[in-house]
Computed example of a mutant assay.
Amino acid sequence: MDYLAIVSVENNRVTKFMDFDNQADADAHVAAQGGFSFHNDQGWLIADLYIDGQTATESPPAGTVEGVKAAASRLILSLAPDWQQRNYIARGSELIRKVQTGGTLTPEEEAEETAMQALWTTVKAIRAKSDELEAISPIPADYAAQLEAVAST
């Protein structure tokens, strides 16, 4: 579905929408419910849309706090997609439970836990750098490169 009726926006993010097969149906919905229609011909995810007035873009403008947050989020998700993060949480709980009930981790499980902790350390470093960059005014033009540098160390 390429046409969206964006009915509600909060903090530049879509909070209520409907998708449609054609522009006429999206426009009719907007006429009845309010909001604006958007042709999502790029197939952007709703969660990635940045709304400024009645303009939708895939990401917030560069050089803004929202832009830094979005860059950090994209970087973290490139290293650990949502599904992997959920699996790591579940697996980490299993390993903790094993130790708490008197078990011992095998060398493979210890290596697995070490890898999960290394990724988590990188995520925390990206978040810390993002917080640091968000506090600078004006935000440095190379903020994305600075975030990537933290991720590669």
Rank of each mutant, 00 (worst) to 15 (best):
D2V: 11
I6R: 02
I6G: 04
V7Q: 15
N12K: 02
T15K: 15
M18G: 08
M18D: 14
D19P: 01
D19K: 14
Q23H: 11
A24I: 12
A28K: 13
H29V: 03
H29A: 13
V30R: 09
V30P: 08
V30F: 10
F36N: 01
S37G: 09
F38E: 05
D41G: 15
D41W: 13
I46E: 05
D48W: 04
Y50G: 08
G53K: 08
Q54C: 05
T55I: 10
T57Q: 13
E58N: 10
E58G: 14
S59Y: 11
S59A: 15
P61A: 05
P61G: 04
A62W: 03
G63V: 02
T64W: 04
T64N: 04
V65E: 15
A70L: 01
A70I: 00
A71H: 03
R74Y: 13
L75A: 00
L75P: 00
L77S: 10
L77R: 13
S78Q: 05
L79W: 02
Q85E: 11
R86N: 15
R86M: 14
Y88D: 15
I89C: 07
I89N: 12
G92V: 11
S93C: 08
L95Y: 05
I96C: 07
I96L: 11
V99D: 03
G102L: 00
G103D: 09
G103C: 06
T104G: 02
E109Q: 14
A111I: 05
E112C: 02
E113G: 08
E113T: 12
T114G: 07
T114E: 12
W120T: 10
T121M: 02
T122R: 12
T122A: 07
A125K: 08
R127W: 00
R127D: 10
K129F: 01
S130V: 00
D131R: 06
L133D: 01
L133C: 05
A135S: 15
A135T: 06
I136T: 11
P138N: 03
A141K: 10
A141G: 06
Y143V: 01
Y143R: 00
A144F: 06
A144R: 13
A145M: 08
Q146F: 07
A149F: 08
V150E: 04
A151H: 05
A151E: 06
